[in-house]
């Protein structure tokens, strides 16, 4: 794998990791810019942020081992992104059966999931599965 590609992935992961960190703080303390207060959810985002950021230094040095953290980060982002999409669908079903009101609110975990897709694509291209 080319060193520049690993470095590029490292930069991408650093940005994503910092966004996760920022949003995790917003979720833990709650109520900032329409981000819901969800302490456990915020702690989960903190774990994801830590996973990305731990791998950044090594990835920026062009080391393949740094990619492991990026892969695990992408995995965790996908798990929580898909989870909240499913919950959004469940909320819509609740609305259909007349049990709750529904607003198409995308939790940060969902749009962050879409944001990591380019990174997931790059990793998929580079790693032998």
């Amino acid at each position: 794998m080319r060193e520049e590609k690993v470095k590029a992935m490292g930069i991408y992961a650093a940005i994503i990791g910092l966004i996760y960190l920022f949003i995790s703080i917003m979720e833990i303390f709650g109520g900032i810019y329409n981000v819901p207060k969800d302490i456990f959810g915020g702690l989960v985002l903190l774990v994801i942020a830590a996973t990305y950021l731990t791998g950044v230094k090594r990835a920026l040095n062009g080391e393949c081992k740094g990619l492991s953290f990026l892969i695990a980060g992408v995995f965790l982002s996908s798990v929580f992104g898909i989870l909240y999409i499913l919950i959004l669908f469940a909320n819509w079903l609740e609305y259909l059966i007349g049990n709750a009101s529904f607003s198409f609110y995308l939790r940060p975990e969902i749009w962050l999931f879409f944001a990591i897709l380019p990174l997931a694509y790059l990793i998929k291209k580079e790693i032998r599965w």
Binding site: L43, V47, A72, L83, L86, A90
Partner: peptide, 19 residues
């Protein structure tokens, strides 16, 4: 990471199955 994944399991269990 283990606790985060366990949390995902229980959010899925409760929130997705609610309707």
């Amino acid at each position: 990471i283990f606790l985060a994944l366990l949390y995902a399991v229980f959010q899925f269990t409760f929130s997705f199955s609610a309707p």
